[in-house]
């Protein structure tokens, strides 16, 4: 009975594949889980080798961390990331729409400009921004960070949203024009509302990239505007690495991005693949 034989083989394959995937998932997650677990370990157990494998969880790393300064840096991270995301969306979305709908000779030039500014290594911007901010007094300010985050966020918004607009039919807009709606009104009332999911996707990615930034915050802030990733590195102090605190801080920094990513997985994946799969 070849049919059932085939089924049996297929089932075996599935079981095998499932097992491999479970193993791979564990390997992928292990380093991350180890780190999170470490943040709940008492300092002694961190260095205790295998003896520290079982331990009584403690929140002391978190409480010792939650002083004004770390809270302040989390706030800075939050403000700079969200404001920059919103600005980029407000400025970039109409532009992306125009780029998608208009027929322009310079299109390839724009694409190159946008892609290149997304691809440029941060150090290329950090040097001139540092020099200019020295004179403008924007070093170590949230405004300064927000502006510099626009370098990649704006490009990201235009890139992703144009992809989205390219894929949406124009029938509705054209119908609205025929009904005498103005171009601006059509954009606001017809186009924007149907872009909801795309806007969410883009916003998540912008927020993620800004939140995850380390380089600009390291070079362009000192204390007032210092963001959480830099503050965590700061725990490597003169007296040594405070592993418990570092782990707790790192865990706190990843909570928002992890929560976002897991809750909105579909959007996130859509955004990340948009550039590559469809162009």
């Amino acid at each position: 009975m070849p049919r059932s034989k085939l089924d049996a083989a297929a089932r075996r394959n599935r079981i095998l594949a499932n097992t491999i995937v479970i193993a791979l998932a564990i390997i992928t997650l292990l380093p991350f889980l180890w780190f999170v677990v470490m943040s709940f370990k008492p300092a002694d157990d961190i260095f205790a080798g295998i003896d520290g494998f079982f331990f009584t969880p403690t929140l002391e790393n978190y409480t010792s961390l939650w002083n004004d300064r770390f809270a302040g840096s989390m706030l800075n991270s939050f403000i700079t990331s969200s404001v920059s995301t919103i600005l980029a969306l407000v400025i970039g979305t109409p532009g992306a729409y125009a780029l998608s709908r208009a027929t322009m000779k310079q299109e390839r030039t724009f694409s190159l400009l946008i892609l290149a500014s997304r691809m440029a290594p941060p150090v290329a911007f950090a040097i001139p921004y540092f020099l200019v901010y020295r004179y403008m007094g924007l070093l170590d300010t949230r405004t300064g960070l927000i502006l510099v985050y626009l370098t990649f966020n704006l490009a990201l918004v235009v890139w992703l949203m144009r992809n989205f607009f390219d894929a949406t039919p124009r029938a509705l807009e054209e119908a609205a024009w025929i009904d005498g709606a103005s171009l601006w009104k059509t954009f606001m009332v017809i186009v924007l509302p149907m872009s909801g999911p795309a806007l969410v996707t883009t916003a998540i990615l912008c927020f993620l990239y800004s939140w995850n930034d380390f380089f600009f915050a390291l070079t362009l802030t000192r204390n007032n505007a210092m963001t959480a990733p830099v503050e965590v590195v700061n725990f490597m102090n003169y007296e040594g690495w405070e592993w418990g605190k570092i782990a707790a801080g790192g865990t706190l920094i990843m909570v928002p991005v992890l929560a976002f990513s897991l809750l909105m997985r579909k959007y996130l994946v859509a955004g990340m693949t948009a550039g590559a799969v469809k162009g």
Binding site: R222, V233, N234, M236, N237, Y238
Partner: peptide, 8 residues
């Protein structure tokens, strides 16, 4: 006081 790690 603003205190930072030595290399930073």
């Amino acid at each position: 006081f603003d205190l930072q790690a030595f290399p930073v």
